[in-house]
Design a protein around this nucleic acid. Structure first.
Lengths: 200, 200
DNA sequence: CTCCGAACTGACCTGACGGTCACTTACCCT
DNA sequence: AGGGTAAGTGACCGTCAGGTCAGTTCGGAG
């Protein structure tokens, strides 16, 4: 191999970790935290279970790592896109485009953020809450602005609209990863068409 | 007791079954299929695990029973409400009202239909697919009509809009059962207000 | 009184899964 | 050559949840 080979299989730790994280993200996304098994992730990575534990400490540690990598990348793009959104409904397309593009390599990753089968307490729950709070803050700010421009100031209404918008986003992603295979660009175009139709 | 007492605790089977189903629906809805345990359901019902198995055969059997009862009642009201919906966005409120009213006694029941932690194969998956298909058919018919009235005939677009609408519904219900406690009437009013604002 | 059947349970089995340990293999440095 | 260290594993343990069995307690029918 061209890469300096170290150890029994010659795969250095950073490379191995990245590979495990990739496999684990797909597995967690597809089966959920509760139903995903470490042994299966190890097998699909071509290694044995103890190595996963040596590198990530625990199932929680592995999930945490996947979650942070996914969520950090996602939130970066989302905050960036949100700044291109104004008071119009149509401008929301920027958020959707950013989402689809960020998720294109591994759409199932989206499920990590809102997996209902993950533990309710502990480090995972805390981190997930943190990311959810950040996402909601973005959505809430946008909703509040949107409603204020239309003369509605009730914060409960803004929260409800934010929840609604996130539900829309979630449903679109879900359809993306369960329905027929499509590119991010196709999804964006379809959403643009729909947005125009519903507000015609 | 006034009720004819039969057996060691004097609770006749139909009454016991109804009680178990009620407890199990709440448990499945709150914790999801994977995290809900039969022993816990039995304990919360004041009986032992073997009785649950005697009456329902298996965890799947119990879930199936809860699912059918919830979904049948829900779909009845939904099909009924859908007939009051015309081409306007505002008329969609009828569907939401029906949903909130049907779910008022046990909002968590909604989760049974779309629990991602349920098995992917077998009787449960089949039944859930069946109900989901029926729900989607209702939503798809409405979406198709809605888009046709606006000059869009692509069936993929209609399917996407149906998914989107169901996402809206799901997010509203989710917010209902995680957020501050509110009556079905309050939720309906809020949605009516939001609907009017977003399309102003 | 006695038998039958229905309601009900303590104790057990089994398999899966998270997690650990002792141990091996292979490279690098001196 | 030989030790140090990192990569890697087979075999094991504890726990917990789904599922089963043998058996007990009661009311009612004859």
């Amino acid at each position: 191999m061209s890469i300096p080979a170290i150890g029994t299989k010659g795969v250095p730790r950073p490379r191995r970790e990245a590979q495990i994280v990739r496999v684990a993200t797909a597995e967690f996304g597809a089966r959920g935290y509760a139903r995903a098994s470490v042994a299966a992730i190890a097998a699909r990575s071509g290694i044995s279970k103890p190595l996963v534990y040596q590198y990530f400490g625990s199932k929680d540690g592995l999930y945490l790592r996947c979650l942070t990598e996914v969520a950090d990348a996602l939130l970066d793009r989302l905050t960036d896109a949100e700044q291109r959104v104004d008071d119009s409904v149509a401008s929301r397309i920027h958020v959707l485009r950013a989402l689809f593009e960020a998720l294109e390599p591994e759409p199932a990753a989206w499920r990590l953020l809102y997996d209902p089968s993950m533990p309710r307490t502990g480090r995972i729950a805390a981190k997930a809450r943190h990311y959810r709070a950040r996402t909601e803050a973005i959505a809430a700010a946008g909703s509040q602005r949107f409603l204020a421009a239309r003369g509605i100031t009730d914060p409960e209404d803004a929260a409800a609209l934010a929840a609604l918008w996130m539900g829309v986003v979630d449903s679109l992603v879900t359809r993306w990863l369960t329905g027929p295979k499509q590119s991010a660009a196709q999804m964006t175009a379809r959403c643009e068409r729909l947005l125009a139709a519903v507000w015609s």
